[in-house]
Write a protein that binds this DNA or RNA. Structure first.
Lengths: 229, 229
DNA sequence: CCAAAAGTGTTCCCTCTACACCCATGC
DNA sequence: GCATGGGTGTAGAGGGAACACTTTTGG
């Protein structure tokens, strides 16, 4: 048996892929690092785990520090532990993704402590990332691609009231393919988890669309019946 | 921001749910602990991660030490990091499952160092487990339930040559429901990834069944087309 | 000849897919 | 009145589910 990991020079951290959806674009929050290693590189937000917090709490804290948001949909999806992934020691990183609605004043506040700035960046225009963060991102994107086919996570990316076209947009961008409008609507409505708000979109220069909201109560009653795309 | 985790009194470990399939029963390998904490309790095999090994390597090592097997199908599926999950300090545990064929002389060799004994135990008759290992097991079982519907993992639990009934058995036990024989065969064969070995079962006291093997090469060519159960 | 499991087709229904035009609104 | 997206139905194909009897073999 190999020698066991000494209790120093190793630790664990959380890295977060914060997905945001804004006007038809899928973005993630990146920070520009202010410290070595990888000073001045873009990176996923992350931090070491505090002694008195669980992994979930730590992920929620990181998100909160950057966005001031709480109660956001987050999920742990993989742990990265290659020996040399961090140049300064053995750091195992537990990856989370979060899904959130952009387009208000949800912009992040730069963290003077460990980041020069933070920006929402379109996932199709990502810069080179520090550490193994490209790999972490790739796996996160792959994860939500799978998940959106079976779980009602698309709604986390939209405002509470949304149109069917906006919803379709989320699916198209995440799945990276065009969907048929009629079939999409038929199927979505057939699940019976969308509540017609009998209310129209406002401020658009064309025919206003009907607004819907996701009916969590109804969805919970369908227990076990997975949505299948 | 909270105080960052000190680089001592914390570390990370691997815990493994080793699934084995044997004569219609799904089992996992449990060890009886020989050390505090939870001395004399049953637990999942696991260990601290060595300094010079990746997480995957560490999981493979644990499996190898117990079974002498290599090149086994293993997958990381979740990381458990509640603050108090380990009574002696902060230990974050990365969970893996493995799938393997039992029924030869694959029985584990007890590890005198940290276990009194190790046994294959039917998943329906598990004893009370140490730490949060029940939770780790539950999540692992749930994971393979999902995975078997889309990925060809059932074959990992069977000998190289198997009958369709044996294969159906694996699905029935993992999914925990009866399947229709004709529909199962039709569907399985329709994927085109089973190779008819033109060879019959031997030593049975009834009509011998045709043996098949999983054709990995064919499967690889179907790239992207997921099996769907 | 009996017990045990192997092996085999058809029908019905439902779901997925492909596909094109009129409607409402703001400017 | 024109540009923009909203909103709607149907037909055909394919896949999933339900269902029972004959065959083979060893003992």
């Amino acid at each position: 048996m190999k020698e066991v990991l000494p209790h120093f020079n190793s630790t664990f951290s959380i890295d977060c892929v914060l997905f945001g959806f804004d006007e038809g674009e899928l973005k993630i929050l990146l920070i520009e690092r202010n410290e070595e290693p990888f000073k001045d590189w873009w990176a996923l937000p992350g931090n070491l785990v505090a002694m008195d917090e669980s992994l979930d709490q730590s992920a929620a804290r990181i998100l909160h520090e950057l966005t001031s948001l709480s109660n956001v949909y987050m999920e742990q999806y993989y742990t990265f532990g290659d020996v040399n992934r961090h140049p300064q020691g053995r750091v195992v990183s537990i990856a989370y993704y979060a899904l959130l609605r952009l387009g208000g004043d949800k912009s992040p506040k730069p963290l003077s402590t460990y980041a020069k700035q933070a920006h929402w960046i379109n996932v199709k225009e990502l810069p080179k990332l520090a550490f193994d963060h490209q790999q972490i991102f790739d796996k996160g994107l792959e994860k939500i691609k799978r998940r959106i086919k079976h779980q009602p996570i698309a709604f986390e990316l939209l405002p509470e009231k949304f149109t069917l076209t906006q919803l379709q947009n989320v699916y198209e961008i995440i799945l990276n393919k065009k969907l048929d409008k009629r079939n999409f609507r038929k199927k979505m409505l057939s699940f019976g988890v969308l509540k017609d708000l009998e209310e129209k979109q406002k401020g658009v220069s064309f025919r206003a669309a009907t607004l819907y909201k996701f009916d969590k109560r109804r969805y919970a009653k369908l227990f076990g019946k997975e949505i299948s795309f």
